[in-house]
């Protein structure tokens, strides 16, 4: 009896520890390593940075750490431009995703109940193919002699091939395409729970359908809008594959910058500093989200 309650208590204590353990091993430790590298100096060595950690010289190790790499980030405006450009592209993509995703989610929530689970399955279906392959496929669609140009010329909308591939537009198309499920699913989850009689009540009280949409549907869908936007915005800021494959050399994004520092310049410390910068940028919206959520819960228990 006593023994059982002990094991019971042990497991009860361990269950909450699982997420901490996971995050500790796969997020906190790597993060600390990256942080350490970002504070080191580059070197022509293997690995290409110093200082190398040694237990015998802890004081020397700490004294070798400095903020030089972060200073470098502020001196060269390339990083600032890349950051701003990433945030801009991610923000605009998120707006586009909302514009495309909301009608889809709304339509799904309004579909007959027996169709809904099928629609959800279809939204997730693209995940069955590798992300990378799907982005490669867009090259074939968007290239000058690709499917899109052919189709538009076929119906006589344009007379000569249009340049989409290797422009920022291709990046928007790629992000909207790839991230759409992350926008649609949280929106669908909130819209589906919405009570239709609320809209009838609004109409009954003299509100036109358009106004009812803005005063009732949108505010009630806000948790889904915020969740979907963050699920899209956060990874889009650091996106590397889509701008690299579709965006051409002109498109400046922080994720690409990180890659080139790491693999082209082999400046690991600077690349690590860029990674830390990226993380700081992303912490802001997450904190805002938590704050908004907390206030919402507070006013409406």
């Amino acid at each position: 009896m006593k023994e059982r309650s002990f094991t019971k208590r042990l497991t009860a204590g361990l269950v909450p520890a699982v997420p901490y353990l996971w995050l500790g091993v796969f997020f906190l430790v790597p993060f600390l390593i990256v942080l350490k590298i970002s504070l080191s100096d580059p070197a022509v060595a293997q690995p290409p940075y110093k200082p190398v950690f040694e237990w015998s010289d802890i004081a020397g190790f700490f004294s070798a750490l400095d903020l030089e790499n972060f200073e470098l980030l502020t001196q060269d405006d390339l990083y600032l431009r890349a950051t701003l450009s990433s945030v801009r592209i991610a923000a605009l993509s998120t707006v586009l995703l909302l514009l495309v995703g909301f009608p889809i989610a709304y339509g799904m929530a309004r579909a007959p109940e027996r169709h809904r689970s099928l629609l959800v399955a279809l939204v997730i279906l693209p995940f069955w193919t590798s992300f990378l392959i799907r982005i490669y496929a867009w090259i074939a669609i968007l290239k000058p002699e690709g499917l899109l140009t052919q189709a538009l010329m076929g119906i006589g909308l344009i007379s000569e091939p249009i340049e989409i591939l290797n422009t920022e537009w291709a990046v928007y198309i790629g992000i909207v395409y790839a991230y759409l499920p992350f926008m649609v699913l949280p929106l669908y989850a909130t819209l589906e729970k919405m009570d239709d009689t609320l809209l009838e009540a609004a109409l009954d009280l003299g509100s036109t359908p358009w106004r009812s949409f803005w005063t009732i549907t949108v505010p009630l869908a806000m948790p889904g809008i915020i969740a979907g936007s963050l699920l899209c915005f956060i990874p889009a800021v650091g996106e590397f594959v889509i701008p690299d494959l579709l965006g051409g050399s002109e498109t400046l994004m922080i994720g690409r910058q990180l890659w080139s520092e790491f693999f082209s310049n082999r400046d690991w410390p600077l690349a690590s500093a860029v990674a830390i910068l990226l993380l700081i940028i992303l912490v802001v919206p997450i904190v805002i989200y938590r704050d908004v959520e907390a206030r919402r819960v507070e006013t409406r228990p």
Binding site: D195, T197, L198, E200, A201, D204, S207, P219, L220
Partner: peptide, 20 residues
């Protein structure tokens, strides 16, 4: 005549109060 142009108001069975 759509519902929003009728001089008629309704109290719903579920009350349909706006939760927000």
């Amino acid at each position: 005549v759509p519902p929003y142009r009728r001089p008629v108001n309704m109290m719903f069975q579920s009350y349909a109060l706006f939760p927000h």
